[in-house]
């Protein structure tokens, strides 16, 4: 792949509590378009912080982040970036409890899909993609943990972003539900040529990635490029 990387992180640090806490310390990372990267590391090493910076939910103290060839710091409209260019699945699903699955998926579409009917149709379609066509009208408290994560993935895909960030999407699931989420992410990557960055503690999830990034104390300390997984080879 010779085109510009989908994500390019350069010398990024993020300092909290007036400098007493360096959650990220000079991180450099490139992710190619269509690549599936897993980030691993012990609790508190800065994985979520890095993901939040790439999702433009927070600003780096130092360094720069380019997504799709554009520096986030120079973007006039970060709302637009958050809505259309990147989708994020949080460590906790962060669904709105009073809205149905379908309505949760529609939330990012306000301002991007004009009509209520178009939003509705698009949400049904995405719920179909994540295998929840039958649960569109169920509210999150009545869904299982795995189903909630799949709704969160559908929501992240609402406006067809090119980049999907997922923060421990399988963290709180049993291994079978976890593997189903992983299969879903891989399928989406293949079908939509999504670039996927997943934070995970689970070696079996990481084993499916093209590349594993190891973090420790706010730094990247290792990288492992993996042979193409059998599943990916079979589908390509």
């Amino acid at each position: 792949m010779s085109e510009a990387p989908a994500v390019s992180v350069r010398g990024v640090s993020r300092v909290f509590e007036d400098g007493r806490l360096r959650a990220l310390d000079g991180v450099d990372l490139d992710v190619a378009t269509g690549e599936f990267v897993a980030i691993m590391g012990p609790s508190g090493c800065g994985k979520s912080t890095l993901l939040h910076l790439i999702a433009a939910l927070d600003r780096p103290t130092e360094g720069s982040i380019m997504v799709g060839g554009h520096d986030l710091a120079g973007r006039a409209n970060l709302n637009h970036y958050r809505a259309r260019d990147v989708g994020i699945v949080f460590q906790l699903d962060n669904l709105l409890p009073t809205l149905s699955a379908s309505e949760n998926v529609q939330v990012p579409m306000f301002g991007h899909q004009r009509s209520g009917r178009a939003r509705h149709r698009r949400a049904e379609e995405l719920l179909g993609v994540v295998g929840l066509a039958g649960r569109a009208h169920t509210r999150p408290p009545q869904l299982s943990g795995g189903e909630r994560q799949r709704v969160a993935i559908a929501r992240a895909l609402a406006n067809s972003p090119a980049l999907l960030l997922a923060d421990e999407p399988t963290g709180r699931l049993d291994s079978e539900s976890g593997m189903r989420i992983l299969e879903l992410l891989k399928r989406l990557r293949e079908e939509r040529r999504l670039t996927v960055v997943v934070v995970t503690h689970d070696p079996r999830v990481a084993a499916q990635a093209d590349r594993i990034i190891e973090m420790l104390d706010g730094r990247i300390v290792g990288e492992r490029i993996q042979a193409q997984t059998p599943a990916a080879a079979a589908s390509s």
Binding site: A55, L57, N79, H80, Y81, R82, A83, R84, I88, F90, N94, L96, V107, P108, F110, G111, H112, R155, A158, N159
Partner: peptide, 16 residues
């Protein structure tokens, strides 16, 4: 407040 954070994270402007 957290829900508003989610709305902002998925691209809602402060104005919305």
């Amino acid at each position: 407040t957290r829900e508003i954070g989610v709305l902002r994270a998925v691209g809602w402007s402060g104005f919305r």
